[in-house]
Amino acid sequence: EDDHHMEFCRVCKDGGELLCCDTCPSSYHIHCLNPPLPEIPNGEWLCPRCTCP
């Protein structure tokens, strides 16, 4: 699979289990988001950068 997502968290710059945005290459740990997510959501997810007006 050709995955163009970042291999590190945009916030802390560390790797591991990352949540990938469905519209851009950004990846995040769920605990690095503000507010943090309790678990990885099902379905499409947009990062804070893509949901800002």
Rank of each mutant, 00 (worst) to 15 (best):
E1Q: 04
E1M: 15
D2Q: 15
D3T: 15
D3Y: 15
D3K: 15
D3L: 15
D3W: 15
D3Q: 15
H4L: 08
H4A: 08
M6H: 02
M6W: 06
E7D: 11
E7N: 02
E7I: 04
F8R: 11
C9I: 01
C9G: 03
R10F: 14
R10N: 12
V11T: 12
C12W: 01
K13I: 04
D14R: 11
D14L: 13
G15I: 04
G15E: 14
G15K: 14
G15Q: 08
G16C: 00
G16H: 01
E17V: 06
E17S: 07
E17L: 03
E17N: 10
L18P: 00
L19K: 11
C20L: 13
C20Q: 15
C20H: 15
C20M: 13
C20V: 11
C20G: 14
C20A: 14
C21D: 01
C21T: 00
C21P: 01
C21S: 00
C21G: 02
D22S: 12
D22C: 08
D22G: 12
D22F: 12
T23D: 05
T23N: 14
C24I: 02
C24R: 02
C24S: 01
C24T: 01
P25M: 07
P25D: 07
P25N: 05
P25L: 08
P25C: 10
P25Q: 06
S26V: 08
S26P: 02
S27I: 04
Y28M: 02
Y28F: 13
Y28H: 03
H29I: 01
H29T: 00
I30V: 12
H31D: 07
H31K: 13
C32N: 00
C32L: 00
L33P: 02
L33T: 05
N34S: 13
N34C: 08
N34H: 06
N34K: 14
N34G: 05
P35F: 04
P35D: 06
P35E: 10
P35V: 04
P35R: 04
P36W: 03
P36A: 11
P36R: 09
L37N: 06
L37Y: 06
L37G: 04
P38L: 09
P38G: 07
P38K: 14
P38M: 10
P38I: 11
E39K: 15
E39I: 12
I40V: 14
I40D: 08
P41Y: 04
P41S: 06
N42S: 10
N42Q: 12
N42D: 10
G43A: 10
G43S: 10
G43T: 13
E44D: 08
E44L: 12
W45H: 03
W45F: 10
W45R: 04
L46K: 14
L46S: 11
L46I: 12
L46H: 10
C47T: 02
C47P: 03
C47Q: 02
P48E: 11
P48Q: 05
P48G: 05
P48Y: 03
R49L: 09
R49A: 13
C50W: 00
C50L: 01
C50N: 04
T51W: 09
T51I: 11
T51P: 13
C52H: 14
C52A: 10
P53A: 14
